Simulated scan of single mutants.
Amino acid sequence: MTGAGQAERARPQPVVVSWSGGKDSTLMLERLLHDEHVVVRALLTTVSTVYDRVSIHGVRRSILRAQAASLGLPLYEVALGAHSSNDDYEAAFRRGLRTLEAAYPDTRVMAFGDLFLEDVRAYREALLARLGWRGVYPLWGEDTAALARTFVRRGYVATLTCVDTQQLDGAFTGRRYDDALLDALPAAVDPCGERGEFHSCVTDGPLFAQPIAVVPGERVLRDERFQYCDLVELGPERSGSAASGA
């Protein structure tokens, strides 16, 4: 192999992370950051411009941006309306990738935190291929019960921000994602919520330079199905009080 070929092989693979702000995205990002063969360029997140929140997860945009700042990674947002069609989503996703291509000409790989849903992965693969990209799935096929406990054991802090009440009691919304919650989940519910049973927001842990202080706020049921809990950021003074137990 020539010197140029060896250098090409040794160069880390640049990757953009599909970032939801939840636990699976966090574990996936951690895996990538610890891989010497990979360099993470940026985070890409789909946001609702109507609600000013992360799509599906219902997390405030300000918290999303605080996550990116604490992680020390650039954030790119794909804007969607309140009830975007699949065509709308794909058009917005395409615009997001074109923006990334301009910022990182060497990058055509996106990482996802998907675990085992074959149809979701097949959809992503087909969409990315049409746009000249490819996907990687660092957590794919791993035992979700083990991943859930690993997340807790690693010291991450996450809160359930959305629950599909057709699959899980809405009372779980707003609860911390910890061993007690995992022990309380019904057997039919995946411990990582991979079938959409619930979604989460991570606010602290090994990857974060500083924690994001939040408290559970208003709870809202949307579409007569999805129970959301609004996470509210605390200001510096209230953050200190919360940390001291006041």
Rank of each mutant, 00 (worst) to 15 (best):
H34A: 14
T49I: 15
E142D: 08
L71W: 01
R222Q: 14
L207K: 03
S48T: 09
V152F: 11
D119H: 15
R219P: 07
G141M: 06
E218F: 00
G21R: 02
S241E: 14
R195N: 15
L117E: 10
R238S: 12
F151R: 12
L139E: 12
G5Q: 15
S85D: 12
R41W: 00
G132I: 05
E90A: 05
D204V: 05
L115C: 06
D178M: 09
F93S: 03
S55L: 08
S20N: 09
R154T: 13
L71M: 07
L71R: 04
Q67Y: 07
V47W: 00
R60Q: 15
K23T: 08
A213I: 03
V38I: 14
G245L: 02
T26H: 08
S62W: 01
R60A: 15
R222P: 01
V136F: 01
P191R: 08
Q210S: 13
V220S: 12
F93C: 07
Y137Q: 02
R130E: 13
D183F: 09
H34D: 11
T161N: 07
R108Y: 06
S84L: 00
A148W: 02
S20Y: 04
L207I: 06
P138E: 02
P191V: 10
A129M: 02
L234Q: 14
T173H: 05
V59L: 10
V15D: 02
V152T: 13
V120D: 04
R60M: 04
P12W: 07
G155Q: 11
R65Q: 14
L127Y: 00
L71Q: 10
E197N: 07
F116M: 12
D178N: 13
F151Y: 14
G113L: 03
E224L: 10
L100W: 02
D52R: 14
Q13N: 04
D183V: 09
S18Y: 05
L71V: 06
E101Y: 03
G196I: 09
G193K: 09
A91P: 01
F172I: 04
G81I: 00
S241H: 14
S84D: 13
L80D: 03
V152W: 09
K23F: 02
C162I: 07
L160I: 15
D52Q: 15
L33C: 10
